[in-house]
Amino acid sequence: MSDEETQLLIRRIKEGTVIDHIKAGEALQVLDILGITGKDGEIVSVAMNVSSSKIGTKDVVKVANRFLRPEETDKLALVAPLATVNIIRNYKVAEKRKVELPDLFRGILKCPNPTCISNRKNEPIIPTIDVVDKEVPILKCRFCQRVISPSDTLLIA
């Protein structure tokens, strides 16, 4: 399937976000990490295993009328490090963002260690996860110092 055919498969959106170049088969994880369930009424298009001139096959997600915040783009790096994020306004790409791990996640991810102080509900604490290696990647809880695999991270609801 050509890129043109992919365009036909998922219609263009007037306003919203297109997440492109997601590794084939991982679009549902992208929806999950962004907390997109479809229950909020947004129009979501998902194409999986479509051809890509850059990476062979890929997934694409389009979300109408929702503009990803920069910190949401950061979260994407955990599941789709090669993805690109296009913010669409009036059918045109208004902004192109590269997905990249930030230096830290503050108030976005929580530590999976149940005995970490950051999971105590009554303490005034903003869970902070440091990205100590962006290549591997390696994350570390600022508080308990546990090394965390990206697949173990938990989103703060």
């Binding site: 530590c111 260690n113 005995t115 970490c116 102080i117 950051s118 105590r120 303490e123 604490i125 809880c141 600022r142 508080f143 308990c144 110092q145 546990r146």
Partner: peptide, 8 residues
């Protein structure tokens, strides 16, 4: 006993 309490 709680991990990370010293850093907090």
């Amino acid at each position: 006993r709680i991990e990370g309490s010293a850093r907090l």
